[in-house]
Amino acid sequence: MQVVDERVWRERTAAHEARVDAATAAHLGRRRDHRKHPVEDFLFTYYSFKPAQLRRWHPGAGTALTAASRAPHRDWRFYAVDGDRVAVDVDAFVTARGDTLRFVRELLLRTAGRPARFGCFGLHEWAMVYRLDPSDVRHSGWPLRLGASGTDAVVESHQVACSHFDAYRFFTPEAAPRNAFRPTRETQPDLEQPGCLHAGMDLYKWAHKLVPAVPSDLVMDCFALARDIRSLDMRAAPYDLRELGYEPVRIETPEGKAQYAAEQRGFSARGQVLRERLVEAIDRVLLVSSDRTD
Rank of each mutant, 00 (worst) to 15 (best):
Y130T: 03
A18L: 12
E125R: 03
A71D: 14
E17Q: 13
A199T: 14
Y260Q: 02
E17L: 06
R284W: 02
G256A: 09
V39G: 00
R105G: 08
E40M: 10
V90E: 13
P189R: 09
A207K: 10
L109R: 15
E174V: 01
A269S: 11
Q188D: 13
V160R: 07
R85W: 07
Y246D: 00
S69V: 14
C222G: 10
L225I: 05
C162L: 00
R77Q: 15
Y239N: 04
T151K: 07
D21R: 15
E243W: 00
G200S: 14
A23E: 10
P59A: 05
S268F: 02
R270Q: 15
Q188F: 12
Y47V: 07
W126Y: 15
H124M: 02
R242W: 01
R55F: 07
D291W: 12
R35S: 11
K205V: 00
H27W: 15
K36P: 00
F93G: 03
A25N: 04
D233L: 03
R275G: 06
K209A: 11
L132D: 02
T66I: 09
F78W: 14
A281M: 05
G122L: 07
R265C: 10
G141F: 12
A258N: 01
V129L: 01
V219R: 07
R31N: 09
E276D: 11
T13D: 14
C222I: 12
V279H: 08
G119C: 03
H208F: 12
G60N: 10
D294Y: 11
P143D: 01
Y260G: 03
W76V: 07
A281Y: 08
V249A: 00
D190F: 08
A236E: 13
G256T: 03
E247K: 06
R35A: 13
R30G: 11
V86R: 07
H198E: 10
L132N: 04
R97S: 12
Y204G: 02
A112I: 02
R131C: 02
G83M: 09
H164R: 05
A61C: 12
T151Q: 01
W57N: 06
A18P: 04
E186R: 10
F181W: 13
D228S: 13
P212F: 09
Q193I: 04
W142V: 06
R12G: 08
K209I: 00
Q2M: 14
G245P: 03
L132E: 13
A236H: 10
H208W: 14
M220A: 05
A269L: 08
A64E: 12
P72W: 04
E280W: 00
V90R: 05
A80L: 09
F170S: 14
A199F: 09
A67Q: 12
R277N: 06
S69I: 09
M220G: 02
P134K: 07
F78C: 01
W126S: 03
E252P: 03
A68Q: 10
D33A: 15
L287M: 11
T111M: 14
A258S: 08
E192N: 08
A175I: 04
G83F: 08
E156R: 09
G119L: 03
F44T: 12
G29F: 07
F93E: 11
V285D: 01
A175R: 07
V3R: 12
P215W: 06
L107N: 05
L144N: 03
F103K: 13
